[in-house]
Design a binder for these strands. Structure first.
Lengths: 227, 227
DNA sequence: TGTACATCAGTGAACGCGCGTTCACTGATGTAC
DNA sequence: TGTACATCAGTGAACGCGCGTTCACTGATGTAC
């Protein structure tokens, strides 16, 4: 009732396992653990990722790892969260951009490039996110959804806008479905880029093919002839 | 040199760990282990899939598991091989089918349905194949490639054929790139079908959107209006 | 149709390492006065 | 500017379970004669 004054009871802030509130130093260690997790994900398999290896690789001890994460999965989850924040910016390549004619085609290609680059940089984390999502882990699914959702919404808005500006084609497919398919295509091709190279398909051609599909699907027009 | 006659030295046939050649009974046990592996992959996470659990789940002992597989990965690999054999048949939905006009659009939809159905049935194994492939495991990559390759080649042949029949559009994108992108789209959307539902996108719309993209990309024509 | 022998098949039980996990303790950093 | 105390931070070392892995043995199946 009365003032239990001097006991701070903020409960929403980050806590270590034993209840301490991490300061500068602690957060830095936590980050080193995350970085090391990302690194090992890049070079090794998820199935073989162990707490001890992460801790030792980060130049610290297993006990320290448990200060910040309950298990390996939790560390990967935190890593994925970091990434999804950055990924939401992809929609910047869609909103307030020209989508008509030659400039529109350029926008399509820029979007394709941005997605390709983002996937390349986060390849290792993304594949685990994909796996966990499909295994039914809702926490990972949420992250994945948040990551792609903005982009999908942005694209669907463009579809609506384009349709409203010319009342020609009788295409009434759900704009979100159209956008979703496009985003899926981008995500999948980005994820399997090296698979393509493996078949002898040059990245440049993949990029062009996707740029054309994006442009055509959104605008309903043929892409301007390459020069 | 001369006849070491009666010692059979066939070396390419299936062998158990200790060198025995499995008969009826042994093969049946092996298959039960595979089935159980598939089952556990469906309901649990790959990371938590253990030899002991598979063996006990299949009503046998760990020691028996090692008769047939050196480790969990090997069992999953065998499972993937089974699947890829069946998957090669997807190209049947492309070759010797009509690709013009209304019938062509129907072909597109049938292809989409077939891919969706196949992915659904093999969802659990496929996600592990995808993961392992991206982690750089060449054995899994090979299986994945074999699985999708026939379909890709078949589609690219259609692209070539369609282009040769009408000399209108100046589209000289590598047909394999075009086909590869389409297959990727199909594979990715199939894999993330439930993600779509999650966004409130109905499967029917997804199917239509893909059918349209396939048709348009291959034929260069607008799909016939839905009726 | 029966007996003997070879090989296939399966597993209980044990071994032991790897790894997750924790505790009690030492050291570092911050801040109140 | 210094001392004391609180809290943050880190970890060595140990514990013990889980699990991979193997071996020696029993039982099942097949086939030669």
């Amino acid at each position: 009732m009365s003032s239990s004054a001097d006991t701070t009871t903020d409960d929403d802030e980050l806590r270590a396992a034993d209840g301490r509130v991490p300061g500068r130093r602690g957060l830095a260690t936590r980050q080193r653990l995350l970085d090391q997790t990302a690194e090992m994900l890049r070079s090794g398999s998820y199935r073989d990722l162990k707490v001890v290896d992460i801790a030792r690789g980060a130049g610290t001890s297993p006990a320290t790892f448990y200060q910040y994460f309950p298990d390996v999965e939790a560390a990967v989850l935190a890593l994925a969260q970091e990434m999804s924040l950055e990924g939401a910016e992809l929609s910047g390549h869609v909103r307030d951009r020209p989508w008509k004619g030659r400039a529109g085609y350029a926008t399509s290609l820029e979007l394709v490039d941005a997605v390709l680059e983002f996937w390349e940089r986060n390849r290792a984390v993304l594949r685990v996110v994909d796996l966990a999502t499909e295994e039914g882990d809702m926490r990972f699914r949420q992250i994945r959804t948040r990551l792609l959702n903005e982009l999908t919404v942005a694209l669907s808005e463009v579809v609506v806008k384009v349709r409203s500006e010319k009342r020609s084609v009788a295409d009434d497919t759900d704009p979100m479905a159209v956008a979703g398919v496009l985003v899926s295509m981008l995500a999948h091709v980005a994820a399997h880029r090296w698979g393509f190279e493996f078949w002898g398909i040059r990245t440049g051609d993949t990029r062009t093919a996707m740029g054309r599909i994006v442009f055509t699907t959104i605008t309903g027009q043929k892409p301007p002839v390459e020069r």
